[in-house]
Design a protein around this nucleic acid. Structure first.
Lengths: 217, 217
DNA sequence: GTCTATACCGAGATAGAC
DNA sequence: GTCTATCTCGGTATAGAC
């Protein structure tokens, strides 16, 4: 028989982790929950449970649900990498642009949570949305605009404005991965092979001349 | 002086409406609230307040929040119009396709709530999403696929699969309107002129040869 | 059919033992 | 730092007078 004292095991208690690990686990769990249900729909109880932690630990480590949300977004953008800085004379501008698009789409395939969180906030004005745009989206939008100007100046690229290119990349490009649950129910080919095909499809729209296949690491 | 009996006016009571009007007002309010905050984020209190009604009237007219959500989606799809049925030999298949795309995008510009609701559900599997796909999205996806096959058979249209065409229309095409709050904060030209330009942009991607401007009613 | 009052639940946040 | 207990608030839904 099992002794009574060992029966009363805590429901979700794991081997004690270092505080930094608890924070990291909470951030990873928050990305999934915020990306699945939006800010209002996600609950700190569920986030904590997914991380194997207790709900009050969220307030201890992140002060509030709002701070946890921002930390989650910050961490996902950090994972995406720094904003590409313009290097005027350096190398093939078209190849630099194509590399940026491929990098972003591959990240979106690996971490669909970021684009989910962004799109779940995009439909209504809010302080969160204003912060998201000012802190993260606007700088990247500027970098993409500069890169696209260089592409067009070199004579390559489709006849699209920088705004249209941004929307092709972030809407057509990224929602393929962010909206996977819906697209899966709709049928269609999906999976590793489909990822490469989708990246090629995006590049074929932006750079009709080619540049869709080189350096397929 | 105002008499005491007239001072005690109910907070939000309006002139008494017919029951059908209350239902219609609740549906319109629900479209806005569900489209802005998602299913979980929307509250029946706010929906009722926006419709100038009382919260329990939602349960009376629609039984539950879930039923109200489905009725809202049904009504928006009814506004969009019936699923186009294939007419094999009839007329210019390319023009029929272009007309469908233009109609959908103009509807999306006038009623961004539908695409907002769809995209807010698209990131996580749920009974609601399964119903949405089976009841509404799959039939329209089938119709678009048939129309696109006819376009390609006629030798026109870009080199894109039917899945890719669906995503160009619903992601790149419709999110331009659904995500207006975010795109507005990001800058860029928006407004009536921008709507026509965006429709032309979508068609230029799908039908590179032309067909972007005719019958601009 | 409409409204007031309220039941009931789960949310985020906090206090205090450990 | 972690965990239990609990506070307060806002959510959906229901009961019953009108």
């Amino acid at each position: 028989m099992v002794r009574a004292t060992t029966i009363a095991a805590p429901p979700l208690r794991r081997t004690r982790r270092r505080p930094a690990d608890v924070s990291a686990d909470l951030l990873a769990a928050a990305a999934v929950e915020f990306g699945s249900h939006g800010y209002d729909g996600a609950s700190t109880r569920r986030i904590a449970a997914r991380a194997g932690a207790h709900q009050p630990q969220i307030n201890y480590h992140f002060t509030s649900k709002e701070h946890l949300w921002r930390a989650t977004v910050d961490q996902l953008f950090a994972l995406l990498g720094p904003v590409p800085t313009p290097t005027p004379g350096a190398g093939d501008q078209v190849e630099l642009f194509a590399r940026m698009v491929r990098g972003f789409l591959r990240f979106s395939a690996d971490h669909p949570e970021l684009n989910r969180i962004i799109n779940l906030e995009a439909t209504a004005s809010s302080p969160r949305l204003e912060w998201l745009v000012a802190a993260h989206l606007a700088p990247r939008r500027g970098a993409v605009g500069a890169q696209w100007a260089a592409v067009r100046a070199s004579g390559a690229g489709a006849v699209l404005t920088a705004d249209e290119v941004w929307e092709v990349i972030t809407s057509y490009g990224a929602l393929h991965f962010a909206n996977e649950p819906m697209l899966h129910l709709l049928g269609g080919d999906r999976g590793p092979t489909g990822t490469a095909a989708h990246v090629a499809s995006v590049l074929s729209i932006l750079l009709p001349g080619g540049h869709g296949s080189p350096s397929h690491q």
